[in-house]
Design a protein around this nucleic acid. Structure first.
Lengths: 319, 319
DNA sequence: CGACGCCATTAGATTTTCTAATGTCGTGCG
DNA sequence: CGCACGACATTAGAAAATCTAATGGCGTCG
């Protein structure tokens, strides 16, 4: 039984329908010589001449035309197979129990759900907002299918993979007086009155390390594992906090909260998706995570544009 | 529309039917890791999980099973397409005018026809036996669709490609006294009384060159472009001749003619198939040539076995 | 007769595919 | 309970396949 790659079969179909190797090449985003070789390879494998190379056109032989018809049928079946599989997969009902930190529930989750829920209406979602310690525990206990938490060394019984790498921002209220979006060098700031996560939070350890290594002076530190309270407090005081960019994308250009990228050096937070070792991710989980990653990427694009904006305006003003 | 190679699709089908990546690998002449990667690639492209990796077996998901069913259908259609195309092509009637030298008509042609004629009953064959000069002329005049002749530099109006590379053998009768099949070094033979082709034959020039370059002494040379007469003459005298192995395969182990491979160095003859530039080969021509090449390869295998035989016997005797 | 369009072929660069090696995990047996 | 074994997943690099660029050959048209 001949084993002819689909790529070659598609070439034969294209030549048949276009009546020309050159036009078939254009349609298949290939070169004329590539198409020529594909068709020749099929003819060689079958031991059958599929096309008569006539003046001004390429015409299928009777055998070639029959072959073309069957191939179109087969390719159609494969396309249908793919659609069906996707459709069936999409219809999979079931639970999806997700653990997300406030980092994500504030600005990432809503757009993801806007898209995911209509696409997978039969999936029953359970979303737990919590901090990484709690979420990790729940995953270990298999109360969650997965959670997204700050990257850490791993735990027996958990499987993890990097999902998000995000830039940390300095968040402050108007009272602090910082110009929005301007990159800020923490080591040059007057001593910080800063709200930070509790000691069990891995991001906290990273912040401590950063402050220590780069001579960031802290006047007072307040531990809060309460996101809403943190933001409220910072908005109405001269305190600051440090949060990932995905959380504060909706604060760009709003005044209530001032957001400044931390620079020289930049500070990044990494987040992983964790799941029980003994489980593989369900289809719905993978679709959700795919959409989640897309949304994070979109937010990063928005941030890139926002940070470029003032630089562009500055440049225009200079001219 | 996803573009999934047939190779990956076959992997999915095999895993479905075998219930195991390892067994699928054996069946597909691949490695388990190769199969794993193919299946993963399909799942990634579709965004759908096709298999549940359970204990002791791999089970298709509902979507995976449906996909499998459709793929089997499509692959069946493609196989049928190939069969149909061949069948249609096989029914092409028409002339096939072939020029062959006695080198090939004596031992290659008959088995080829034994196979070709029943497969292509509607093809009307015309076979011209002749020497290369004549055959070349006829091809140029388009009296032949193609001919097989010794390789040469080419001629305007002719297209050629290498078809056969064959080892030259020393042919002699019992009177010469050579042990059959033993490799022979011509430069160590007493001066040869040799029958050679006429000066227009390219093989003749090659022989002259070989004799000259390797110190082969010739006592007497007789020019004969008459194969039957040459063989008859050599069989009943102490004269020798040099012929390609394909012509003398039927003389192995027969005594009437003694065949010895020429060695140290070996001498080879190359033959090309020539056709008019302005023509492409018909389907029946290509099928014939394919079968022809297969038969030549078979003959080479027979020779390889025959030449190994005495060496094996010799080795056994030495022990 | 030369230019142009189109297919065929060759050579080499790029991409894909494959295997070898190894890691991870679950099960069964001692 | 621990170890060995079987099976899938992943990585790295070798090998094979595929693709394009360049060019040749051929027929047609102006």
């Amino acid at each position: 039984m001949p084993n002819i790659p689909l790529r070659q079969i598609r070439a034969v179909i294209a030549v048949c329908e276009e009546g020309s190797f050159t036009r078939a090449a254009e349609r298949e985003n290939a070169t004329q010589s590539g198409i020529s070789q594909h068709v020749a390879a099929v003819e060689r494998t079958l031991g059958v001449k599929l096309f008569e190379r006539t003046i001004g056109a390429v015409k299928p032989t009777p055998a070639g035309y029959r072959y073309y018809k069957r191939c179109v049928e087969a390719v159609g079946t494969l396309a249908h197979a793919a659609e069906e599989a996707r459709s069936l997969a999409g219809q999979v009902t079931g639970e999806l129990r997700i653990g997300l930190m406030p980092t994500f529930t504030r600005a990432v989750l809503a757009p993801v759900l806007d898209d995911f829920v209509p696409r997978c209406p039969e999936v029953r979602l359970h979303i737990v907002e919590g901090y990484s310690g709690l979420l990790t525990e729940m995953v270990l206990d298999e109360e969650l299918d997965f959670a997204v938490v700050p990257a850490f060394e791993g735990t027996i019984g958990l499987k993890s993979r990097l999902l998000v790498r995000d830039r940390e921002m300095l968040i402050s209220g108007p009272k602090r007086g910082l110009p929005p979006l301007a990159p800020v060098r923490l080591s040059e700031c007057k001593p910080l009155k800063i709200v930070v996560p509790g000691p069990d939070n891995i991001r906290r350890r990273n912040l401590d390390t950063y402050f220590q290594s780069h001579g960031v002076e802290v006047e007072t530190m307040l531990e809060m594992d309460a996101m809403i309270a943190t933001l409220e407090f910072v908005a109405r005081s001269d305190w600051v906090t440090v949060l990932p960019s995905v959380i504060s994308v909706n604060d760009i250009g709003r005044g209530e909260l001032i957001v400044n990228p931390i620079a020289e050096p930049e500070l990044h937070a990494e987040f992983v998706v964790i799941q029980p070792t003994r489980r593989t991710l369900s289809t719905q989980a993978r679709l959700f995570l795919q959409r989640f990653e897309e949304e994070v990427a979109h937010i990063h694009d928005v941030w890139d544009e926002a940070i470029k904006g003032p630089a562009k305006k500055k440049l225009r003003a200079a001219i």
